[in-house]
Design a protein around this nucleic acid. Structure first.
Lengths: 114, 114
DNA sequence: TTGACAGGTGACTAAATAGTCACATATAGT
DNA sequence: ACTATATGTGACTATTTAGTCACCTGTCAA
């Protein structure tokens, strides 16, 4: 199994992406803290965290009997660089910004169409 | 199934990533052209291309009896934006550049499956 | 119209993966 | 030492998914 395969396989599961979302909002959480946000068993969460750690998407540090989890953005950036050329990057990000702006408008609670 | 799930599931397979690599090098290829680069059956390749198309990672255009395939970078950029903050983006990309320079090797295209 | 070529389909098999269980280890504070 | 808390493990099951087969449809060019 190649390194990049581990990364993409890790990202292939919705629960693991949710864990990354949690860590993106706030780093340095423990296993128990993360488990509280999910409906799954603790061991289920632990297995997911291990997959993320083996992929390098999450970095951990022991602190006493606790294990703190941190999001590592580097693999994500490497995905980006693999299929987005430096010369077209600006155009793509502009396009994405426009898209998300439009969509967020669509999602806004509309005052109502009287 | 959510949109982002389709994207990540699509990226979870090495053959499909290899197809994206091929299209990244040169756009607008036909099914047969892509099949020639793989050891798999034509139908196998077709199924993979359909997964990529449903995920929005590949866009197609019919031209007579041929179907041309193009790489769409937008979903890739959205992955990036999900876990890389605009304020830390510069640091991360600098770090990645240093890393790739030092290693002097980027990710190799995945080899054909045995 | 006929033959050759490009692409499309349903059903099947083998392998990979998510999630669970009961049980085990290690640390903090009293 | 003792107990509550935080994390770690091996084996099992159910589901998903990659890849193949034989066969069908549509388009080009002579």
């Amino acid at each position: 199994m190649f390194d990049d395969d581990r990364v993409f396989k890790a990202l292939g599961d919705a629960t693991r992406r949710f864990l990354l979302d949690l860590l993106f909002k706030r780093d340095g959480r423990t296993l128990s803290e993360l488990e509280a946000e999910l409906t799954m068993t603790r061991f289920g969460v632990m297995k997911h965290l291990r997959v993320l750690e083996n992929a390098g998407l999450v970095i951990t540090r022991r602190a006493g009997r606790e294990k703190l989890h941190f999001l590592n953005p580097v693999p994500v950036r490497l995905i980006h660089d693999r299929w987005i050329d430096k010369y077209t990057e600006r155009q793509v990000s502009t396009l994405v910004d426009m898209k998300t702006t439009l969509e967020s408008k669509k999602w806004m609670p509309v005052k109502k169409r009287a």
